[in-house]
Computed example of a mutant assay.
Amino acid sequence: MNVSVAVVDAQTPGNVGTIARAMKNFGLSDLKLVDPPELDPDGEAYGYAGQARDDIMPSADVVSFAEIVDNYHTVATTAITNEDATKHVRYPFVTPRELVEELKGIDSDVCLVFGREDVGLSNEELAEVDQICSIPASEDYPVLNLGQAATIVLYELRALTVEETQLPDITDRADQPAIEGLHDQFEGFLAAIDHPEEKRAKAGRLFRRVIGRAHPTGREVRTLRGLFRRVEQKLED
């Protein structure tokens, strides 16, 4: 399954560039433009596109809305989050996160369709697409900027478009004897600064909690021990 992005009648060139950049961020490359504004290679669209100015922007296809509907499983986005079928031409809506699971069962190519900055897609256009996606937002102000909306949707679809990279495991954590040495040195530091004896055990427990959460590296432990050592030496002078 290939995922394309279509922007319908964008009024601001910068938004086209912002969407192209988000596509590059999340592994997409096929940009379709319906009735686009002039996209000057020296203008804001290419300026906002980042590295997408080199490939996605120059290779974008200008197409009609009918071509998109005829050739793709279409998913339109809207800021309207109606709760029943009587308030809008299309119901129900899915969130971007829910959309991921639904698209996993689609065999045809998919096109995400984003509408105009001010009014979005018309009811006639929404009636022609296959699915509607809406981003849950505050009822007081549910309308997102076009570029923001596209970035959120593409981020949620990253499981379909990019290979997830696992965060590296912590492999350079200092060994336990070095960490215990740091705790011993902290006790010596408390004594050197004449911290009240009845409070030292509590301070030691708090320090142990901090170090336990931090997973310090060997270098970090050595640096901390060196600092404590210098303070103790200064106090002895």
Rank of each mutant, 00 (worst) to 15 (best):
D194S: 14
A178E: 10
E124F: 02
E117G: 00
P168F: 08
M57C: 08
N15P: 00
A137D: 06
F26K: 11
K87M: 06
Y141I: 05
E164D: 13
P177H: 03
P37C: 04
Y46D: 06
A79N: 07
I179W: 11
V221A: 04
D109H: 10
T77C: 12
G50C: 03
D237Y: 12
I80P: 00
A66I: 08
I211C: 07
V162L: 14
Y48A: 15
E128T: 05
E38I: 09
A150P: 15
L227V: 13
A178D: 15
E67I: 07
M23W: 04
G212D: 03
R90C: 06
L206D: 14
G17I: 01
A20D: 05
F114G: 10
E164C: 09
K87E: 13
M1P: 10
I132N: 03
G50P: 00
D61I: 11
G105S: 12
L126W: 04
E101V: 13
R213T: 04
G105P: 07
G181Y: 09
I106Q: 08
T161V: 04
R209V: 08
D55F: 13
A85W: 10
S138W: 02
G43C: 09
A174C: 05
T161A: 07
A159C: 07
R205T: 07
T95M: 03
N145M: 03
G47A: 15
G120S: 02
S29A: 13
K24A: 10
V100Q: 10
V129C: 07
P196D: 07
Q176K: 13
K199T: 03
R116P: 06
K199S: 09
I179D: 06
D35T: 12
V113Q: 13
I19F: 01
G212S: 07
D140C: 12
I106R: 07
R158F: 09
F114D: 06
G188C: 12
G204H: 07
D172T: 15
K24E: 06
Q11T: 15
A127R: 12
R53A: 15
C133R: 02
F93H: 13
M57P: 01
M57T: 00
T95W: 06
A22N: 01
A192R: 00
K32S: 10
N2R: 15
V221C: 04
P13E: 06
M23L: 07
T95H: 05
E98G: 11
L224W: 00
Q176S: 12
D118T: 15
K202H: 10
T223M: 13
Q233V: 13
T77A: 12
V162W: 09
D54N: 13
D61V: 14
Y141K: 03
T81G: 14
V231I: 13
E38H: 10
L39I: 06
F228L: 15
A85T: 01
Y141D: 07
D172A: 12
R205P: 01
E44F: 11
P216V: 00
L31Q: 04
A20N: 00
T86M: 08
G181D: 14
P58F: 09
N2S: 14
L167E: 13
D9A: 15
A174W: 04
F186Q: 02
A174Q: 12
T86A: 11
V5E: 02
I179Y: 02
P136L: 02
H195I: 08
T171I: 09
A49E: 03
V153Q: 05
S59D: 14
S122Q: 02
A191K: 14
